[in-house]
Amino acid sequence: MDIFSFLVQTLNAVQYGLLLFLVASGLTLVFGIMGIINLAHGSFYMAGAYLAFGLTSATGSLVWAIVLGVPLAMLVGAALEALLFVHLYKRDHLEQVLLTYGLILIFEELRSLIVGNDVHGVAMPDFLAGSIPLNDTLSYPVYRLAISAVCVVLAIGLYFLIQRTRLGMMIRAGSHDRDMVQALGINITVIYRVVFALGVAMAALAGMLAAPISSVGPNMGGQVLILSFVVVVIGGIGSVWGALLGALLIGFADTFGKVILPEFAGAMVYLVMAAVLLWRPEGLLKKGA
């Protein structure tokens, strides 16, 4: 592998990892703070991709689709939390898994009813459609760099929100002691709703960003869900920065696995997970970090 193809693969790995982080951070936040295992989280990614398809067709641009789609995803997330997830906080994991697995089936059926089972493509915005030439034969698509840039900005924003704002302090405090937060006069229900809606919006945004570079089709949520859980477990359940590390690790493992050991590509991610868990059974970072 020469330096340029190594660079291309590295950029791919980072972009893939960052996108995965966008999905996994919501999953780990919801689990770490609210104690909920949300199997339907991958469905939000899928819904985001279909939203990108539908809204791009309607408005003519992915940018508009994102501008409209992200607030919509937040509203749907808040509504789902208020109607369904709010009943799960005091229940055990089995009931959480039952409800959220049921939601996967409902979302897949709805998708099938509304848009059918065909595979779709979404056009990337014209101004990001170009690529940057690296040498005579290799070039790198601007759109993928743009995905990475958006994800980095969001990761920094998330860091700022959680570490530097009062809302973030309340969120972190709530992950430790829900009753105590309430006893300080803070309405934890509202905080949970915000966190959940944020998680849904990030997963949907990841789906929208991914739509132009991966086909939009049935069961795209399942694959992402499994990888997100791998990321969350590697990173340390509940840790957002663990999720970032885990996501990048998985991005590199998957991308370079496919290049170096193509015959083991499918197993590479799980080998990395097993290795990390043997080394640190609780994940890379602890909860709340």
Binding site: H176, D179, M180, A183
Partner: peptide
């Protein structure tokens, strides 16, 4: 009782 501070803050 037991103070209820947030150790992660």
């Amino acid at each position: 009782e037991g103070r209820g501070i947030f150790p992660n803050l």
